[in-house]
Structures are given as C-alpha cells and as structure tokens.
Design a protein around this nucleic acid. Sequence first.
RNA 1: GCCCCGUUAGCUCAAUUGGUUAGAGCAUCUGACUCUUAAUCAGAGGGUUCCAGGUUCGAGUCCUGGACGGGGUACCA
Length: 504
Amino acid sequence: MPMLEALQSRDELNPVIKTRVEKACGLMDENVHLYPNDFKRDTEIQEIWDQYTEVEGEELEAVDREFAIAGRVVSYRSFGKVTFFHVQDRSSKIQVYAARDELGADPYKLFKKTDVGDIVGVVGGLFRTKTGELTLKTKSFQLVSKSMRPLPEKYHGLKDVETRYRQRYVDLIVTPRTKEIFEMRTAIVRELRDFLDEKGFMEVETPMMQAIPGGATAKPFETHHNALDMKLYMRIAPELYLKRLLVGGFERVYEINRNFRNEGISTQHNPEFTMLEFYWAYANFEDLMDLTEEMFSRIAKKVTGSSVVPYQGVDVDLSVGAWTRMAFHESLEKIGGVSPEIYADYDKCRDFVKEKGEKVIEGEKLGKLQAKLFDVLVEPKLVQPHFIYHYPTDISPLSRRNEDNPDITDRFELFMTGREMANAFSELNDPVDQRGRFEDQVAEKEAGDEEAHFMDDDYVRALEYGMPPAAGQGVGIDRLVMLLTDSASIREVILFPLLRPEVG
RNA sequence: GCCCCGUUAGCUCAAUUGGUUAGAGCAUCUGACUCUUAAUCAGAGGGUUCCAGGUUCGAGUCCUGGACGGGGUACCA
C-alpha cells in the first residue's frame, strides 16, 4: 500500500491515520475513485439558504427540484440505517440526510465509509426534519476527495495557535472566525481599490527587488541575482518608484503590495507586510487628511457595517469629523506633558530622553530625540484617530519643508489604538533639497545607522526633470485589517505568518 | 537581543509535597440503533509526557542546556 508507506516514511502514521488509509484502500478495492473530478455541483449551499430559509411544510415538499452540492463533511451522526451529517462549502453548510432505504443497500454501505473531513458530492431534494432543520435528502452520493487525517475536535475546535498558523488550511476548515477575518481582509482591500479608483487613482506595480532600497527607514533583506551577479534588496517601500511615476505624468497612482523589512517580529510586525501607498499630484498633506477620513470611515462602514469599530474593548470612532488634528510639538506638550523649554532645547531634551529610559546615540539630532519622547509619551495615548502633523525635518528625509518653518515638514502620521496607522506628507520635489537630505542620510549611515537612507542618484535625476507638487501616503494594510477585525495580533490577519521551520 | 510563560493521546484538557500501571471528554475501532445535531448505549485500542543530559530508591512534576510557540520589553518607524 503506497499510501501507507508514504505516511510511514514521514513517521506520521498514528493509528487514526492508519485506519483511514486502510479504509481508503478498501474503497479502492471496491473500485471507488478516491479523487474523482467528475462531480458536477450546480448549487452553492448559501443559495439554498437564501431561497428556502423561510419555506416550510407542504410548500417545501412541493419544491420539485434536486440540488447537487459539494463540500467537506464536518459532522457525522449515524443511526445504523440512517445518517445525518453536515456538508460545508465555501459559502455555508447544511445538514444532509442519508437513508439506506432511499439510497439502496449497496450504495449506503459504501456511503457509510465516509469519514468526517472527506469532501463529498450529494444530489437530493429538500425537507425539514422533526426539529425543523432544513436538510438535503440524499438521492445519490459520491466521494470527491478522501481525507486521511482527522480534523480537530468538533466542540472545542483548534485552539493551539501554533498549529493554527502553521496549518492554516486546518484552521480555515474548523474555525469560522478565521475564515471570516480573511474574507474581511479581501473585502477591505477591494474597498480600498474601489475608493481610490473612484477618485481617479491608477493602480501600478513597481519593483519589489531593488538595487537601492529606499522610501523608508528600515533594514532591508538582501538577495542576489545570479545572471547579473548583482546584489539586490527586497523593497522596504515603493515610494521612490511611485514618485518617479508622478514625474512621468501619472498624476494619481497607488500600489497595494508587499514590503519587506528585516526587523523584529511582534504582534504588530511581520517581516513581509502589505502596504498601500498612493500619490496625488497637486494636493497637499491637508487634502490627504480629508481624503483619509473619508476613506477609513467609508471602508469601516462597508466592511463592518459601522464607522465606529470596537477594538480590544474600546470603540474607535472613524466617522468623518471625529478625527483630531494636532501639531507634533503641540502633542508633545498637551498629550505628552513636555514643555517647549525642554523639547526645544537640545541638551534638556537629550537629558529628558535619557530620564525616560531611552537610549541616546551620540550626535543624534533634536528631531530624533523629540520623536523618541513622542513614542513613549504620546503615541500610546492616541486611542481615537489622531493626525499628528508637522514632523521634524530631521526625521522626514522625503517630506516637503513647511513654508514658514524649515525645521518642520508638511507631514503627518495617523495614530489610533495607540499605534501608527499611516504616514503621509507633502512630497519634497526640490531636487537640490532632496540631494542634500540624502547626503545627510548617507552621513548617518556612515556613522553607523543601519537604517539610514541610501543615496539614490536616479531618483534625484527624476526630480531634476520636475515633479509636480504632490502629497503621498502609506497605510499599513495589515494593521488596518487588525483594527477592522478586532484582532490583537498581526498573525491573525496574515494567512501564513512567518514562523521558524517546523522541527521533525 | 533580553525577561516571563507554555509544550502530556489525532483534538481539548487533568494528573496532590517527587510516589503504584500517566487519566477524562471528543475523535478512532467493534457492536446496537430509521429524525439526530457536542446524538445515545455497551465494549476496545491509542502515550518518545517537546528533545538531550542531570539529581533521586523513584521524575510529567525538581535542576541544566536546547527546540518550538505565546506574551512582554528593547532595537526600530
């Protein structure tokens, strides 16, 4: 029995699996195809519910129609000559009834070899059981795909988070909430696309493998192209390519795709994560705030039914108009409780950062020190949506300077539930200023900052051709999905989160 | 990177101060059963207690190291 050997060689042959394999071999001996592909389904289960939920009694009996459904057997209750089980397809699940007297003795005998977990095809009409449950009465039955492995326990389900992440396919079969979260994720991304398309944005794809990783402050993954014998980086952001497209004349562009950052893993961070970035010519960061409120509230309403969403016990109000806008320095003072005498004075600010237990690197700029204070004292307190704008220029190498104060930029970050949700700014389109900022970054890199930006000469060259004034924004999709699905960990919203290799 | 916690049957969980042969429910197998839905009833089988050492007359339990996972923290945006 090759099936047995295959499992045995992997040392995974527990008695339950062995019994199933033997049962499968028995079916083969009776010329039952374990994996046929000729069953023709004509109805998804939800269609039955949509049409017949309210139909009862004689009216239901009078429905002269058969349905061919297919799906996984997820429960099984047998009484000898009659059996009830539930079949689950992508849309829903429904109870099925099979009786020996109606199927015939031989087909029923074969049917009885069905295990929970098998994928089956059933053809039959509808009726209601004594308890009133809408049920399909089996007229004919076919095994569609044999399952060799037992599903987790029917009542408690799959609790072990490690198994849920490693074997997401099992999680999806037995945990309705998991399925729901990923359906919501898809809906959220679709709504984002609809929204941006409607506003005249064009979706594009830019390189995920880049010779110069730019557009963010992060450690990249490195890789190598053999034929070109060339070092490549997995992108940390699409930003610089999208802005090249603004130069090229695509005035509203967006990309929803993966970024890769070689940093720690946590409930908020997966090494590969999905980002929406969009760029809007002839708009500024204030226009973006308006657009963002509209976008978030609309998506929340469409996906969850309300623009007020519960997150980990707190209601987050995403309704248009409910969002707070506050300048960065103002937030340090009003929310963080740091007076201007401290945050505006380099030495005092540095000492205060140390006092708060944060590390200070020699030569670190004031803006960076202020950002550290913000992280500790302000960010965790921003539960309802807050736009924090006018970030220090020191920590915003790609943002346009404020016209009245060159030390700050026309940039904002969006915070809620105590974490960053989006980063946006009026784009720097002055090539001379941009080159200077890159040079500062290169100096920081040489001073040991692994995450400082690289010089990107081609990007500066693009700016030299002239880029229209524009505003751009990046939104972490995983975090948005976490918010809208009330998920505490990013792993709950990524189908296959990165884990160490399984041992054994 | 550091700290804390967890890992026992296919799944969900027990196991007293270190003490007999590691238990239960579900699942599985055998039998009964024609309206059940965590079906029921009778019986049976199923364990590298994550791995490797150590302490002990005796280790699921204590110690050391390791693996994997979870949470926190740090780095980082």
